[in-house]
Write a protein that binds this DNA or RNA. Structure first.
Lengths: 350, 350
DNA sequence: CTCTGGCACTCCAATTACCTGAGTGCCAAG
DNA sequence: CTTGGCACTCAGGTAATTGGAGTGCCAGAG
């Protein structure tokens, strides 16, 4: 999948084990790990010298690297890659907090709030940044339309969709509409299009308008005109919910102000991150970008663990965690997974 | 106003001038300023030695302090206080950007968006953090009510208020209501209470319910019950809009990670900051908290410049800027002032 | 062929020492 | 009151020193 990756079977059993122990240790305390320590830790009853030989091999393969001549080794991106792909042993996520989340999510009405809760939980559990893409609603179907006259030419549109979401928009009209005109228009639209996809509704309306331009009664025309304007440009609001960015400040590898500032700035910009998340929408399983694998500068020292979440077996969004490359993958992965499962369940329309 | 402040007339003309020049210089480049430099800068044709004598006086009064024996002087909180209260000469804020803001604000419909725009502008203009409290709407009057049945016992409430704001709430009911029941209830409520204050409406309803408990027709009862629940607990959403927090990362006096983290965390918590802003609601004029004057730990190295904004001569909110104590007050103050004026104008109901 | 102890070598990081420049306080003379 | 002079202080930078951790490689043992 990733170019330049190393096949696990190119490594001896022993090398794999040592790499695993090394990475686990490095993740724990962030210091380069040397041969003496590794020999003890590995429980393989090897001397430091033998370990050194193995390390030399691993270095040649590009799985570890030494910051300088006489320091221990640290994992490279490829090292982490191999680790998360084939060596990792994930720990199941512990009990009570999970049930709490399940309950809280179930109790929520507003999908936006539910998403935010999930994002907060991710950040709280991992002590890193949690991010949840809002469920996409391109197949959102209409449930109710309401028009309300605000002033001469300004009309408030209230759209209720089947996933219990409410959208308000204000549109500026070309001419003035009376209250009763608007009411009739709303009634017509609601009656005709309930249960239909928003996009589809708009297309139908546009089509209708073109076909029968002249011979329409006043009500029909009003309804179509208003409907067309109301559905015009779907203003996607925020695209994802991010929580716990500030957690990232505690990681020494991100301590450089400039770097951190870029990172935060890019969280605000959203586009790049969103693009990254979009990539993960298609992936069926949990996805991990390590270090520069994301191909996006500010995330160079970070890893991103994402997984899609489903409602009724249909993928509707992505959620995950952003943290330093040196993160506890074996804990984070199951946390992300369970969150996806619970969020999906909570969003199921009732 | 502030305890422990120093009367300006306790200082000679010369001392005041020197203090002013010192603070202006320190604000410019953040270095302690020494006597030689100050003697030149002040254009008073004094020798450094004389300046030193004055500095000793100022230090005794607690207006300046020396970080160590042989460094120049830096202003203390009291020094800044005196400076902003009586020495400062504000520069009027420059043209084109202001007109841009005026235009953008005028064009906005949704008050929430308008507030966010103002906040962004503050942050962009000052390169610090901009914060705008949402206009309070306790005297918000009702314009339209709508009930919509989502499922057996869940009803969506849509409240439109006179300031063109729309609130959606979902309430869980004790018994099931039919669609027509809800419609009648909404009609009744709208008809009876349009133009009344929300709080007042709720009180009237509760009163009504107590008075005539039994002898009510079904519609009335439904209307009152629903109305009472709908207005129950006003869920104030976000309380203020904050922009440009990340700008604060570039200030060396806030460079310490731990401090910065606390600051950001407290932005997320909101309560404390909100309390601070609330204090300023009553102040008629522009208000400045310098350093620890806010009495709130994370803001110790920061100053907060706020001013209330008015709609139709009634104060409805507060906005301002948060930045390092060493900020360019003479620029920031007019920026904050003009923003308040423009925001107030833009929020005037049309 | 694999493992191990030994040894020389390297490099970082922390400590120490030293120096310079900026600035002060005080004093005595103008 | 102002000023120049002088001794003193201190932060911050540069350079030298040292100790420790760890490596690579080799030769000998299993």
């Amino acid at each position: 999948m990733t170019k330049n990756s190393v096949e696990p079977n190119a490594l001896s059993e022993r090398a794999q084990h040592l790499l695993k122990v090394l990475i686990e240790h490095y993740i724990r305390d962030g210091q380069p790990v040397g041969s003496r320590l590794l020999a003890k830790e590995s429980r393989l009853d090897l001397s430091p010298a033998s370990v050194r030989n193995v390390m030399a091999d691993l270095e040649e393969l590009g799985l570890v690297t030494a910051p300088h001549t006489s320091a221990g080794r640290v994992p490279t991106v490829q090292g982490y890659r191999l680790f998360v792909d084939s060596l990792i042993t994930v720990k199941p996520v512990e009990g009570p907090a999970v049930e709490d989340l399940a309950k809280t999510l179930k109790a929520g009405f507003d999908p936006n709030r539910v998403v935010k809760t999930a994002s907060h939980w991710l950040s709280a559990m991992t002590q890193m940044a949690g991010v949840v893409m809002y469920p996409r609603r391109d197949r959102t179907s209409l449930r109710h339309v309401e028009f309300l006259r605000l002033s001469e030419r300004r009309v408030l549109v209230i759209l209720v969709t089947n996933d219990q979401e409410v959208q308000n928009r204000i549109i500026e009209c070309k001419r003035e509409y009376s209250a009763s005109e608007l009411e009739q228009a709303a009634n017509y639209l609601t009656k005709s299009f309930v249960g239909h996809d928003l996009q589809e509704v708009r297309e139908t309306i546009v089509e209708e308008m073109r076909r029968a331009k002249e011979d329409m009664d006043r009500i029909m025309r009003t309804a179509l005109e208003m409907g067309e304007r109301a559905l015009a440009d779907e203003p996607r609001g925020d695209d994802y919910a991010l929580s716990g960015e500030t957690n990232l400040m505690t990681f020494s590898e991100l301590a450089d102000m400039e770097r951190l500032r870029n990172l935060f700035e890019s969280f605000h910009q959203k586009n790049e991150i969103l693009h990254l998340l979009d990539q993960c929408l298609n992936a069926a399983r949990t996805n991990i970008f390590i270090g520069n694998e994301s191909g996006y500068g500010p995330l160079d020292e970070c890893s991103v663990v994402t997984t899609p979440y489903r409602v009724d077996d249909r993928v509707v969004g992505v959620l995950g965690v952003i943290g330093p490359t040196r993160m506890q993958y074996e804990k984070v992965i199951p946390i992300v997974d369970i969150t996806a499962k619970l969020l999906g369940a909570a969003l199921k329309p009732r």
